[in-house]
């Protein structure tokens, strides 16, 4: 009976965390994409200094969230995003705006895919 109760508790914890994790990912993805959009607006407005500052802010925010996300998501995807983010500031400093923008769009897609890939949908399960 004791083992049965422990099993029920463990399973309940797994189920709760399994279904609450996509909520956390959704929130984080939203915050990250908002920061990307802010950078894009500054780029469009030719506000380079503000764009650099927002990119630093975005990079710091990603590094804070990365430690938690790494526990639950395939590490290859995380490394990919981290590598791409590390290229952003140098690209902006050397005025390679087109490469910077494409890199930023690529990062946005990767971040959104983390959330989408974790939603318990039929296509993801099968």
């Amino acid at each position: 009976m004791r083992r049965f109760v422990i099993s029920i508790i463990i399973l309940s914890l797994i189920i709760i965390s399994a279904f609450s994790l996509p909520i956390y990912f959704k929130k984080t993805t939203l915050e990250l994409t908002q920061k990307i959009d802010e950078i894009n607006i500054n780029i469009k407005n030719n506000n380079k200094q503000e764009a650099i500052s927002k990119t630093y802010e975005f990079s710091k925010f990603w590094h804070d969230k990365k430690n938690i996300i790494t526990v639950f998501v395939n590490n290859d995807e995380i490394d990919h995003i981290t590598y791409s983010i590390s290229r952003l500031v140098p690209l902006l400093k050397y005025n390679n705006i087109s490469e910077f923008s494409s890199n930023l769009s690529y990062i946005k897609i990767l971040i959104i895919s983390i959330y989408i890939d974790d939603i318990p949908s039929l296509s993801n399960i099968f």
Partner: peptide, 24 residues
């Protein structure tokens, strides 16, 4: 190693729990 440890722990714990619950 690129697979998070949780990807191993969650199914392992789940299986053990299924087994205990089913046997009960």
């Amino acid at each position: 190693t690129s697979i998070p440890l949780f990807y191993g722990i969650v199914p392992l714990l789940s299986l053990i729990c299924f087994e205990v619950i089913l046997s009960f």
